[in-house]
Amino acid sequence: MSIIKKFLPGIIVISIGIVAAMLIVKFGPEPDSQKAEILPRTIRSIEAKSTDIKLFIESQGTVAARQVINLIPQVAGEITYVSPKFVAGGRFEKGELILKIDPRDYEVAVITAEATSAERKQRVMQEEAEGALAKAEWQELGQGEASDLTLRLPQREGAMAALRSAEASLDKAMLDLERTEIRAPYDGLLTAKSVDLGQFLNRGNTIGTYHSTELLEVRLPLTNRDIAQFDLKGLQTGEKQYAVRLKGQFANKENSWNARVVRTEGIIDVNSRILYVVAELRGDELFSPDDGSHITIGQFVSAEIEGQTFENVVRLPRESLRQGNQVLIVDGENKLRTRMVDILETNNEYIVVSSGVSDGDIVNLSQLALSVDGMLVETQPQNALTENVAAVISQEANND
């Protein structure tokens, strides 16, 4: 009993506190409720505009000569002359003398053939004269029709055949003499030589490797998607050609050349599933319109091939494309909406859209999280953003 009396005042105080708190909660003023404010996210954007676009297909390859041959003599003999340019890297014009074989044996053969031909010609003239005399004598006798043998026609034909053989031998001797001089078959470049002055050549020996510089080619690989940009049938038959711009670096300097895609190689590589087309350069195309530099055999070049022209398509920056051929459009309520698009072309800089985006659509360019459909945004056009960045850079420069 004494213990209860000891703690009773405390129990009474706690009870009164609990009752007071309950009364305050029940009858006290309610706190003002606050609505959560949703702030829009600022994004970079661009307005879609339809236009007509000519597509360019990118590829790369190495410059090579269309004609590469081994220089081989057609006659035997000792080399008595070589051109100063008969070295690896030497350039020759069509018809220019490369080397000369000792011609004396062939000059003697020509003289002998000329003598034989003259002798055979004299024999023909003699047979013609004897035949005419035999015919006149027969006509004087008046004993009917003379035989061919009487008129010496077989003898004349034999002499004519011997003359033709002698003339053929003379032509052959003169041709062999002409072949003692090995001349460039076309404008070209000697890339290797295997003989030199004083060496004896047999017919069929290789004296060097010669590349044409009149006509150069570049093999350009195309994927299945790239091929769709061409009139493949017209290209295969040669009825259609496509302009191509080649770019390459040499001596730490970049140049460009104009060329033409003239044909395909006709088969698809079984390993890479790639079809090669061939770009051709000749004449003025071999020289760069930039500074006149000649394109070099073996040079690595990139290529931009002129493809088809598409009407009423939209070109957007590459950063607007999301996974699964999707873009984000800002709707009338400034909310992001996902759109599926059909893409004609894509590269590191831009995409070309044929459907899914219309004129005037505002397209997002910012990198956002995956779940963004319905997100409230505030757009900042790409052009305006660029101007703001330029203004900031200018201000920082003035401050410095």
Rank of each mutant, 00 (worst) to 15 (best):
T379E: 10
A243Y: 03
F86A: 06
G17E: 05
L376C: 02
E345W: 13
K35I: 15
Q395P: 00
V314M: 01
E306Y: 07
S354N: 01
Q155M: 01
M174N: 12
V19F: 13
D148V: 09
E137L: 03
Q229D: 11
A113K: 06
T309R: 02
I43E: 04
A192L: 15
N224I: 12
Q326R: 09
T150A: 08
I14A: 11
A48D: 08
D231G: 03
E178V: 06
R44K: 11
L281R: 01
L55C: 06
E239P: 05
E306M: 05
S371M: 13
P185N: 02
E378I: 08
A259F: 07
Y106R: 04
R66M: 12
V82D: 05
N252P: 08
T112L: 15
S117P: 07
I11L: 14
M340R: 13
K5V: 08
I111E: 15
E311L: 08
Y186R: 00
E37L: 11
W138R: 09
D32T: 12
N205C: 06
T296R: 15
V341D: 02
E140M: 10
A115R: 14
E167K: 03
T191K: 02
A21H: 11
T206C: 10
S358D: 15
I69V: 12
A115M: 12
P31M: 04
A161R: 02
K240M: 07
T213I: 13
I267C: 01
L177M: 03
Y81V: 09
Y242W: 10
Y81S: 04
V13T: 11
Q249V: 10
E345M: 15
S288E: 01
I227T: 04
V313K: 01
R203K: 15
D284E: 13
G360T: 01
L170S: 05
F27P: 00
L328C: 09
R203T: 15
I267T: 15
R337E: 14
G298C: 02
A64Q: 11
K6M: 10
G292Y: 02
T42V: 11
V377S: 07
G95H: 05
E254G: 11
Y186C: 07
R260Q: 14
T42R: 15
L170W: 10
I268D: 04
T213R: 06
E311I: 11
V195Q: 00
N383H: 12
Q60G: 11
H294V: 13
L149P: 09
R183C: 09
I72N: 11
G283C: 00
M340H: 13
V261T: 07
P31E: 09
E239N: 10
D291R: 01
V341S: 03
I53N: 00
D187M: 02
V218D: 05
S272P: 03
I57N: 07
Q229Y: 10
A115S: 14
E96Q: 11
L222N: 06
D231H: 06
T112P: 03
Y81W: 13
M375F: 02
G17C: 13
G324Y: 06
V110L: 01
V218S: 00
H211Y: 13
I305Q: 00
T42N: 04
V314R: 03
I11G: 10
K26H: 12
P221M: 01
P103H: 00
S272D: 00
V327L: 09
G283R: 00
A384I: 10
T116W: 12
A115G: 14
Q60K: 07
Q367M: 14
I267A: 13
M125F: 13
